[in-house]
Design a protein around this nucleic acid. Structure first.
Lengths: 215, 215
DNA sequence: AAATTTCTGTTGCATATGCAACAGGAGGTG
DNA sequence: CACCTCCTGTTGCATATGCAACAGAAATTT
């Protein structure tokens, strides 16, 4: 993906765009799966924008469990919390999932107004705002899923989101069942068992990642 | 709280501020506990800013359970997801918790640039951006807590966040134990039981809302 | 083609947790 | 004071769920 195409410059006309790209001193880097892109131990004045591939925001907790807090792909942003936050969280880092390329931009470049007070800066800030709002929505949805107490209710909550999004009762999970268990923070085998029960109870039909909701 | 004091106008000089306040056609309204401030069935072009009191973003799920997705107080924002999102979520509404006053601002007013392309609009968008980022951080933290599988681990995760924030191992919960159970999405009695076990195991000392972590 | 890893699927067992039900205390209100 | 509501605290019971362990299928790499 070219820098010209990232969401950050949506709505900026091409001459301004070219000027900003050179002015922003954007750094690009490629990563292989498993590589640590960035830890957030210190406060950093930069955000990452994903140009290709996918990245996970991961935390290792006290017991050594790996928790995926966010899953990011093309045109998503990470690090904005750390560029702005006063109190730095602990043990969170960005890890490459599928081989990826990331563009790093200094946050101060984004927020500052240039000498000419040009409109394009405003547009850029608005674009950032839109992406962060999208992220808020995704996180809220996940909380909604996790707030259900039983595995069954978590799955029903998530499945109905998907079927609503598709506009029909059947859909294909966008990831593996292992990952699904991670997403709903349940034990995989317990989840598999529950899916079978739900199928036995006539709530859903399923075959691997294909799910059909029967009310 | 006066409109002049809300975060939205931070960094805007007072003459511009006065001009914007009149130009934005902000509506203010007071609510009593339990009142529904706003449902989000239809897409609305406005965000709410809380001037005083507190507000919960609540969802009633299919089984009739009440889920608090976000807790908001002074200078927090709600509705920005719905002003921007394409697909409107279902059954979410904002409910007054402690008696409150809310200012409603049309989102288009915030994002649009006025004829003069004045700087203050940029500042306002930046301020919105900062608040939404703060919200993202809060939601991430909650996911981190909820991602723990056992009640014990959820509590330890949350408690260590608090003690870290306080800079010392003992702290006072900012809300009731009933509410704590809601926050970690666990049954209250089960949580109380677990707190006792943790105390028996020498992990914490506790008296009502006062918690002390012993490693 | 062979080797290796990841994904899907299943089972037994111990126990953590939800649920229902109850009770005393604190605080607020008429 | 009497009444009410909310918060804290506790217990018994049924069961949902985590954990460990295993195995074949599918995908990916060598």
């Amino acid at each position: 993906m070219k820098l010209e195409e990232i969401f950050l410059f949506d709505g900026v006309d091409s001459s301004d765009k070219a000027r900003m790209i050179s002015c922003f001193k954007i750094q690009r880097r490629k990563y292989k799966p498993g590589e640590i892109i960035c830890d957030f131990e210190e406060k950093r004045d930069r955000v990452g924008i994903i140009l290709s591939g996918s990245v996970s925001l991961v935390r290792i907790d006290a017991s050594g469990n790996r928790i995926v807090i966010e899953d990011l792909s093309e045109n998503d942003v990470f690090g904005e919390m750390f560029a702005l936050a006063d109190d730095a969280p602990h043990g969170i880092f960005a890890e490459c999932e599928k081989k990826c390329e990331v563009a790093f931009v200094a946050y101060s470049q984004i927020s500052k107004r240039c000498e000419n007070a040009c409109l394009c800066h405003t547009t850029v800030v608005e674009n950032m705002f839109r992406v962060v709002t999208k992220k808020t929505k995704r996180l809220s949805e996940r909380i909604e899923v996790l707030s259900n107490k039983s595995i069954r209710d978590k799955l029903l909550c998530l499945f109905s989101m998907y079927s609503q999004r598709e506009g029909k009762p059947s859909f294909e999970l966008p990831f593996s069942l292992s990952y699904l268990a991670e997403y709903i923070c349940a034990d995989r085998s317990a989840m598999m068992r529950e899916i079978k029960h739900m199928s036995d109870d006539g709530l859903i039909k399923n075959d691997k990642r294909r799910i059909e909701m029967l009310i």
